[in-house]
Nucleic acid binder design. Structure first.
Lengths: 362, 362
DNA sequence: TTGTATGCGTTATCAT
DNA sequence: ATGATAACGCATACAA
């Protein structure tokens, strides 16, 4: 069943049937009813693809993840972000197409961009590569939790610097802790970098000395990535400060954190508090500390970041920063829409506020 | 830039340019190289939408959730299932379109099916409604964790009955527990129903008496849904057995479970073990029990189901059944592909095996 | 208010 | 190996 079939059956032109579905207000009620009745009887529905071709508008936006490994959409943070993105897209009349890959050469071109998406939200730690790929196709993009130095690129980020500042204000200003260590995976990601900068700046602000432990191994803070100078300069810096001895793990998951931390313990010089890059790391660190007989927070306080669901269920429940990934996703869709409607829009950065959640671990 | 533009620039016909991209082997190497060079120079890419119209094949499949509320794709189980579905779809040359809604009348027609998807995977507790909607459009569907009594409907389910049997074998056969209570949300969902049936059957098998507590309130096991007779009959039953006094909560999340359980405590007659419908409920039950001073598992053993990430981090870590949602999603895509290629295929049920994970809570 | 004619960007059939 | 032409299913400018 297609448009022309219904037209014949109803004894009208194709244009009339087309109008019945696209601009019903243009038709006489009588004609409209007759056409729609016949269409309904024959279970006819307009073909969206053909419509899209005629309109030169697909109504599709992409949510694309470029990660090292799974989970993609099952990710504790980006899964809910996808929810927000999708619901907002639906509200704006768009559909969401998924993309995910682990490798650059995974036929990225072939697998994802060959679709006629009108725009895309990108989750990646290597933004420039993707941004260029999409720019070649004139497809506007918005980054989530990343920033590009290029023009016409939107981004939606949580307030990492502000969040970590809240944690430090809590630990130092309210609790009076000293000897506060920083524990993270590599700082190559701008979110990580900004959280670290806030940690450093807070210590400076409170006139505290950094946690220094000569027994700790030497880490490569950046995993041989270049820092994002564009973001660094926002904080008046030209490089990531060499400050104390942060504890760096090879990845950001709980298991790695637990194992790596366990190997380090016991430290000759224990910190009084350990500020972790995110909740997953914090939970792993807590496991290792408890295993080694340390009490939390009596011996060592620990803090996380993100407020993943687990953060409230572990024991002790984690002091952390609540970032609502749903909001991030929703904001990303709205920003993307602005770029779809005006591709020449200058780069815009939307910073989503967050909230300190004080629980038992500090 | 479109096909015809490249054709003019290259001095060839449209057909030749089309072949250059679709069937390059049909062209002389010389012609091919020239056309492709020009296309590349002008950054031309074929329009997927127009291609799809001409092919009468969109290359799109849908992943559609019909839930009461969020999270949709951020769901601890269905998020990872989406990962599996998407990766498999990619491997099969398909793209994934998202759909989610909470209400029937949420313009379901308008918002989701108007796309030319070739098939869809459905996550819902009200399968017949959705199945009918898609059948009207001749779009094949596969259900995840649900079963339909209709023809030509595939489904992929975890082995709920087998999993719960493993838990009961463990509790009774290995640990020797008696007075084992069942704790769940309503049984309207077939997964829940089958887990409950396995619980009942295990007690019968071991010649144990059901846990009966006259103080417990009366619950509506089914939430006024009809049971799925089609599935019941597989276990030689015509209705859900009235067996002991299961503890029923209004929903399946941790918070509800914790609050509802707390209200019930202390029970005059405590069970020796509480078999919970899933991990979220089990975690909530554990919280309430610990709060009330019970030791787990010394006073009461507790078990979960699903092995969500949290299950291994709570204290005590949860004995549960590991179901890999990724596998479920991947299997669903492959089954869907069979229905896309042969819509007349009879209903097929794929049962994904699971695994008992014994931890500290039992 | 409705019909005619043309266009959207591609593929496929049948020539040559 | 390449070209001409029809087809895919629908939208819209213009005419009536």
């Amino acid at each position: 069943m297609r448009l022309s079939d219904i037209a014949k059956l109803a004894g009208v032109s194709k244009a009339t049937v087309s109008r019945a579905f696209s601009h019903p207000e243009l038709l006489q009620k009588e004609t409209l009813d007759r056409v729609m009745a016949i269409a309904r009887f024959h279970n006819y529905h307009p073909n969206t693809l053909a419509r899209a071709v005629a309109h030169r508008r697909s109504g599709l936006v992409g949510f694309i993840m470029f990660h090292k490994s799974r989970p993609f959409f099952g990710h504790l943070f980006y899964g809910p972000a996808l929810d927000g993105f999708m619901e907002r897209a639906k509200a704006r009349g768009y559909h969401v197409l998924l993309g995910a890959t682990t490798r650059r050469n995974d036929n990225f071109e072939e697998n994802f961009i060959k679709d006629s998406i009108e725009g895309a939200v990108l989750v990646t730690r290597d933004p420039e590569y993707l941004v260029n790929t999409f720019r070649d196709r004139n497809i506007p993009v918005v980054l989530i939790n990343e920033e590009s130095g290029q023009e016409n690129i939107g981004c939606v980020v949580g307030d990492d610097y502000g969040g970590m500042t809240k944690i430090m204000d809590h630990l130092i200003g309210e609790r009076g802790y000293q000897d506060i260590a920083f524990c993270s995976n590599r700082l190559s990601h701008v979110c990580n970098m900004q959280r670290y900068l806030a940690y450093v700046d807070a210590l400076i602000k409170y006139d505290q000395r950094p946690y220094v432990n000569p027994d700790l191994p030497e880490y490569d803070l950046l995993d041989s990535y270049e820092p994002n100078f564009h973001v660094l300069s926002r904080y008046g810096r030209k490089e990531i400060p060499n400050f104390g001895t942060p504890i760096i793990f090879s990845s950001a998951d709980t298991e790695t954190a637990a194992k790596s931390m366990a190997k380090l313990l016991p430290l000759k010089k224990m910190p009084r508090a350990i500020v972790c890059m995110n909740d997953s790391i914090a939970i792993g660190v807590c496991q290792a500390l408890k295993q080694a007989g340390y009490r939390i927070p009596e011996d060592v306080a620990v803090t996380g970041f993100d407020d993943i669901e687990m953060a409230s269920y572990v024991s002790p429940a984690l002091t952390t920063i609540r970032v609502d990934p749903y909001d991030l996703g929703a904001e990303a869709m709205d920003l993307l829409l602005k770029y779809i409607n005006d591709p020449a829009l200058p780069s815009e950065r939307i910073c989503v506020p967050n909230e300190l959640i004080v629980r038992q671990s500090s």
